[in-house]
Nucleic acid binder design. Sequence first.
DNA 1: TCCGCAGCTTGAAATGTTTCAGACGCCGTG
DNA 2: CACGGCGTCTGAAACATTTCAAGCTGCGGA
Lengths: 344, 344
Amino acid sequence: MANGKAPSVKDVAASAGVSLGTVSNVMNRPEVVSPATRERVERAMAELGFVRNESARQLRAGTSRSLAYVMLDGSNPFFHDVAQGIELAAEDADLSLFICNSNSRADREEVHLDRLVQQRVQGVLITPVDPEAPHLAEIGRRGIPIVIVDRVGAGGAFCSVAVDDVLGGRIAVEHLAEQGHTRVAVVGGPEAIGQVRERLEGARQIWAELGLPPEGLTHLPTAALSVAEGRSAGERLAGIPARRRPTAAFCANDLLALGLLQQSIGAGLRIPEDLAIVGFDDIDFAAAAAVPLTSVRQPRQELGRAAAQLVLDEATNPRHEHRQLSFVPELVARASTVPRHRAY
Amino acid sequence: MANGKAPSVKDVAASAGVSLGTVSNVMNRPEVVSPATRERVERAMAELGFVRNESARQLRAGTSRSLAYVMLDGSNPFFHDVAQGIELAAEDADLSLFICNSNSRADREEVHLDRLVQQRVQGVLITPVDPEAPHLAEIGRRGIPIVIVDRVGAGGAFCSVAVDDVLGGRIAVEHLAEQGHTRVAVVGGPEAIGQVRERLEGARQIWAELGLPPEGLTHLPTAALSVAEGRSAGERLAGIPARRRPTAAFCANDLLALGLLQQSIGAGLRIPEDLAIVGFDDIDFAAAAAVPLTSVRQPRQELGRAAAQLVLDEATNPRHEHRQLSFVPELVARASTVPRHRAY
DNA sequence: TCCGCAGCTTGAAATGTTTCAGACGCCGTG
DNA sequence: CACGGCGTCTGAAACATTTCAAGCTGCGGA
């Protein structure tokens, strides 16, 4: 059985006493081959332990049976949830999925993309470091369908799937304003990240629209969207003189919020009485935090699933048109902003 | 440029006025072709936007340039950290990585494996639902290198990389005993999961060796290793009459511990004064919890990296011998067991 | 009896790459 | 001048599959 080389169609054909074409038909169009022959071939395949060689199939077909997702930050569960959604859609289409991680570095991203082009993947889903990067356009020019996930692409050159980050920032801060906060810290950075920029922008917009004093909204920049940076923001926050110190914080993602939460609790603050906290993404760990975290929910799996469907449409439908899908984020209020009667 | 089909070696050869073989040589053995020719070919490749067709390469080579990791539970960051380690090793070997998720279901696992065999991956790394499952042996019989990650395989039939889970259980409970606890809950299940079985086993061993009263060690079974199950265990714990109630809990993984932690804090318990908690895995979120979690650290990335190296050795070294690598787990004491002076 | 047709099967071509034996030209040496 | 050797390049074969035009049967109808 494990004698040497893997058996090929040729071996099956010989063993069943039929031609190559017939074996192929048994696999791909069983209805055209007579039941007797079909059974004989199937038995031969089972006996030899035949397994299709996907490379040969792909070579002949000109395209592989796989998709790829290049994620931005493997340490953020948010992206794994998106990937999970993509995987489900890929399953349905009977496709394999390559998952890559650029770790927010443009050069890693490019290396991965190069490899994916070599693989002739059917489509690429990506949460890019920079949606304007020329190597993305390059992929598109090669005729490989590409969908931007969690960002909107440059000028409609690609399909994209995202939530409205500006709106997300608005509802987060609106929620805090409703709770009576007039000094709010907005925590997040670097601003090179589009998601961060827009969430902050939304916060500023609604703050102005509500007629709140401009100096009440402080920006605490961070170097990354990580738990550690959240902790460090907490320390800086603690350094602000008490009567100017914000009573609430809106963090650009849940990792920051979790770090801030931890640091604040450790420093003896009561959440939400001394400091209310809102995160963004609503990853599973947000609900599981010591003080369950209020967060702006993105439909994580749905994002992935929708993106996969777009890329498949582009790959198969000749009359495909690029679309910018935008999901509406949703505030999930929990104990980190709402005291007493738990909203969760 | 995006005129039609992707250019092939043949097109490059024609454009550069050389033969196919020469183009191939430029790519694979540049030293045998004269600088002038090489430059001409390289220019032609750039002009046409030529990209190797990986399928054709694979077909010719008989094996793909990719590895695969089938993980057990995509919602547990532990496995993503392992995957990250694998990815790094794969990078070094210039290989792509398929990441699949069986979600603890044997049937999904089998579907994924089938597909990977069709892809003729160079090797399979897997954290299996059941290391004795016949479909694993089947892969091995096909001559595809396979390495069991985070479990030891059946009777040395495969390479494996794991930590000593029994030892892990021992050091966790020994730590609790050192803190003076004499009533300890061991939280985890289902016992069908080998990791769970062995961690519990280690706990029981050391408990007996330390001469502690057998009735002091309670087992709280769970249906899964998830945050939600951890919370539910917390509720059951709270239901135990106070003077019999355990003063410490050892959870079979960090997700359980995080759930238990959250539920307990919500119920007004002080950690670790009222309840000390130890987790297992030491995922990043363990340190980031409200009360930083004491945990048994597994070298997560290292596990993945080592596994990848074993699989590569098996794939390339004809004199390969199966090995069972066992890493030593390490207790990381933090505030969830050690009050006051933070050990972290 | 012959024709046409349906059902089934065949064989060859095509996919893009790598490899390898051999060819070609050139140079230096005997 | 012949020869060997070297550096460089060529062309064909091989990899495993799918597709498709064409072939082969046997059967019903004319």
